[in-house]
């Protein structure tokens, strides 16, 4: 195709203005084919508007974008033939049954009557929706609804799939099912651009992440790189005997080589470190000295912290540090 053929998406200075608001204010993106690219930001950051432009539903007011090598404005039809869009703004018809929705889309893709029914049946089976096939989609639960939405997006397996907040409002079990579907899609060779407000989700699925705020990309990298950019994780220790905290503080500081902080809890200590080997040594020194430890945890910085560090405000109310390894 051309020298950029390894790029699924390349956008330069994309702009979209609604009235006086610059919803998207110069977004640059380079997304490789394969894997999941996470598009992360709070509500109203411009995620959905960017996706709608990339999926040819909105005309950009400025900048250029190519999707799978095709210009989204001049070659919109070629783009539409290879991508699919699923999410809050591209849904199925609630009045129709799950089966009818999939047959409808299959026929629009050019399947004949029997072929369309067969393909719809195959998808319903794969997504665990066989029993609900004959029910109107408006009666579906949140998780079923999201699965039928995604199934509708892969009636013909796309080369690039835009998933707009696919797990918003789902319970953990349904969320895991959606994640499994996304992983299966990627395994089969589809590139996925996923927007989310859940930092945890980007952490779980995405190979690379762009953080968007006020219509601009403010950071990009692997989840690991983003975390590293805000510094290390932390070792949290809770002693059985608060009276020995000073002694423990000295031992830990020596073993870790970093300052140790006292928590508001009189038995708690914490130190910023990402070195698990040193943390393990420090803990064994405590036990050698006969200082009993009730619990400890080595927490890696979460993407919440990343977001806070980048924007100066939290992405959402939630846990600040996910305890990765708790004893």
């Amino acid at each position: 195709m051309n020298r950029h053929s390894d790029l699924a998406i390349e956008a330069e200075g994309l702009v979209k203005v609604f009235g006086r608001t610059r919803a998207v204010d110069g977004v640059d993106l380079a997304v490789r084919t394969g894997g999941v690219f996470g598009f992360l930001g709070p509500n109203g950051a411009g995620k959905t508007t960017t996706i709608r432009m990339l999926a040819t539903l909105l005309r950009p007011d400025g900048g250029r974008a190519r999707v799978l090598g095709h210009d989204v404005v001049r070659e919109a039809d070629a783009v539409r033939g290879r991508v699919s869009l699923t999410g809050q703004f591209a849904s199925v018809d609630e009045d129709l049954t799950g089966l009818e929705n999939l047959v409808l889309l299959a026929r629009l893709f050019g399947y004949r009557r029997a072929g369309a029914r067969a393909r719809a049946g195959e998808l319903l089976d794969a997504f665990g929706l066989v029993e609900a096939a004959g029910r109107q989609v408006r009666t579906y639960s949140g998780g079923m609804r999201r699965r039928i939405d995604i199934a509708a997006g892969i009636v013909v397996t796309p080369d690039l799939m835009f998933l707009d907040e696919p797990t918003a409002g789902l319970d953990p079990r349904s969320r895991n099912q959606v994640w499994d579907i996304v992983r299966a899609l990627v395994d089969q060779g589809t590139s996925v651009l996923l927007t989310t407000q859940y930092l945890d989700e980007a952490d779980q699925l995405a190979d690379r992440v762009a953080v968007i705020d006020h219509g601009r990309v403010i950071a990009e990298g692997t989840p690991g790189e983003l975390k590293a950019s805000v510094g290390s994780g932390a070792l949290h220790v809770r002693l059985r005997d608060p009276g020995r905290r000073t002694e423990a503080e000295r031992l830990l500081a020596g073993a870790l080589g970093v300052p140790v902080r006292r928590g508001p809890d009189p038995a708690a200590l914490s130190a910023r470190t990402f070195d698990s080997a040193r943390a393990a040594r420090a803990l064994s020194e405590l036990s050698d000295a006969g200082i009993a430890v009730d619990q400890f945890a080595l927490g890696r910085p979460s993407l919440d912290e990343v977001f806070l560090a980048l924007t100066g405000r939290p992405a959402e109310a939630g846990e600040a540090v996910r305890e990765e390894e708790a004893a």
């Binding site: 050019g110 794969a126 397996t157 089969q188």
Partner: peptide, 12 residues
């Protein structure tokens, strides 16, 4: 089944 359903990349 999911993988099987995703496999076909031919389009009519």
């Amino acid at each position: 089944r999911l993988r099987a359903a995703l496999a076909p990349r031919t389009r009519p």
